[in-house]
Write a protein that binds this DNA or RNA. Structure first.
Lengths: 144, 144
DNA sequence: ATAGTTATGATACCTGGTATCAGTGAGACG
DNA sequence: CGTCTCACTGATACCAGGTATCATAACTAT
């Protein structure tokens, strides 16, 4: 989990100004556990203007400090990120997110490019399921 | 491309009422080429209430008459659908969509389930790239 | 200290989507 | 053909995510 300090140093290194608003938003983001919506950040950084929160979220996304998590219904959430390109496995019951380190479709992308004459630049891939603990509590509930 | 008539028969068969509003929305949807936003449908079916348009879009999605297309920025569009489960390859330049018939991650899903103890229920997969014709016009523009 | 640029935040707006709820009309049944 | 009922409608208000505008504030290099 990155520290506030290290994120700030990263911004400085890229010639972004360190302002109280930005620090507040970053602190709010780092305080989240799991994935969260912009609304969560807005609530936790009430003093900061709406537009600034969105601007900072975009900045953090561009710097790969957070990544976007696509939920099953198409809504976007965010998540503090530790890696470069990766995918997610989201538990639809408890919301827990498992990071999948390797990009599983790199080979596929090459095949597709050859088959379609597209130059493939990116992709979205997210998996949804039910984690082991949610499955067992479901089984218990069914028995009762 | 399904015809208005056949969509209506499909609704009837599933005990949904055929109303002028629904017919108007379905006609507007079938008139779209490529992928489109709900806004496009709202514009083309102005007489129909906003809520009804959304309700009908959900109905059509549930019946797999349209499918959702996830754009690179996370926004959802719709597209008249001819198949069951499939994925898309979207040209980021002209917006053209190529349907990918086979689900490329079915094998992956099995591997993942074994590795993570999740019961995997679904996934999102979309590819983005540049189609052959957009690539060649880009090359021409660069030369000029 | 100050200049120059970047960031802010209030506000208004856009898009997608849902909740509510009184009113209407499709279509089944007689 | 009438009528009953339930599914459907649409106005409205709301929520969430996100952008545009623009006058004002403030960071930081000099």
């Amino acid at each position: 989990m990155p520290e506030l300090e290290s994120v700030i140093r990263k911004l400085e290194a890229l010639d972004h100004r360190i302002t109280p608003s930005r620090v507040a938003v970053i602190a709010a983001v780092l305080a989240q556990s799991g994935h969260f919506s912009v609304e969560d950040v807005l609530r936790q950084a009430r003093a900061v203007g709406r537009a600034t929160v969105f601007r900072t979220m975009r900045l953090l996304t561009d710097l790969e400090i957070v990544c976007r998590v696509l939920l099953e219904d198409g809504s976007l959430h965010y998540r503090v990120s530790r890696r470069g390109h990766h995918h997610h496995l989201v538990c639809v019951s408890c919301g827990n997110v498992q990071d999948l380190d390797e990009c599983a479709v790199a080979g596929l992308v090459r095949e597709l490019a050859a088959a379609t004459e597209y130059e493939i630049e990116g992709h979205w891939l997210e998996f949804y399921g039910r984690c082991a603990s949610c499955r067992s509590s479901l089984a218990l509930a069914a028995k009762a």
